[in-house]
Measured scan of single mutants.
Amino acid sequence: KTVEVNGVKYDFDNPEQAREMAERIAKSLGLQVRLEGDTFKIE
């Protein structure tokens, strides 16, 4: 899975870890996480 923030992509081998990281980043920035294919987009 991939986490994308402001056009910057971070790859994770563990999908659960990617989801947790995406949620943590989104919460700290006051944004939403949206799953698009294999990418968690933070917008």
Rank of each mutant, 00 (worst) to 15 (best):
K1D: 03
K1P: 07
K1A: 13
T2Y: 14
T2N: 07
V3G: 01
V3E: 01
V3D: 01
V3A: 01
E4R: 06
E4F: 12
E4S: 10
E4T: 08
V5W: 15
V5Y: 14
V5T: 02
V5F: 14
N6A: 08
N6K: 06
G7I: 02
V8K: 12
V8A: 07
V8N: 07
V8D: 04
K9N: 05
K9S: 08
K9W: 06
K9T: 11
Y10C: 15
Y10T: 05
Y10M: 09
Y10K: 03
D11I: 15
D11E: 14
D11P: 10
F12G: 00
F12I: 05
F12P: 01
D13K: 11
D13H: 09
N14V: 07
N14T: 14
N14E: 08
P15W: 12
P15M: 12
E16Y: 10
E16F: 11
E16R: 10
Q17I: 11
Q17L: 12
Q17M: 12
R19K: 10
E20G: 06
M21S: 05
M21A: 12
M21D: 01
M21L: 09
A22Q: 00
A22V: 05
A22P: 00
E23I: 13
E23K: 08
R24H: 08
R24N: 08
R24E: 08
R24Q: 09
R24M: 12
R24S: 09
I25F: 08
I25R: 02
I25A: 04
I25P: 00
A26I: 03
A26F: 05
K27W: 10
K27L: 13
S28F: 14
S28H: 13
L29P: 00
L29Y: 08
L29K: 04
G30Q: 06
G30T: 02
G30Y: 04
G30S: 05
G30A: 04
G30P: 00
G30C: 15
L31P: 00
L31I: 07
L31E: 03
Q32R: 13
Q32S: 13
Q32N: 10
Q32T: 14
V33N: 02
V33T: 04
V33R: 00
V33Q: 02
V33I: 12
V33S: 03
R34K: 11
L35P: 03
L35M: 09
L35I: 13
L35N: 05
E36F: 07
G37E: 05
G37M: 04
D38L: 06
D38K: 06
D38R: 05
D38T: 10
D38F: 08
T39H: 05
T39F: 04
T39Q: 03
T39C: 15
T39P: 01
F40H: 02
F40A: 01
F40N: 00
F40I: 06
F40W: 15
F40G: 01
F40L: 09
K41H: 11
K41F: 14
K41C: 14
K41L: 11
I42L: 11
I42P: 01
E43Q: 11
E43H: 08
E43F: 14
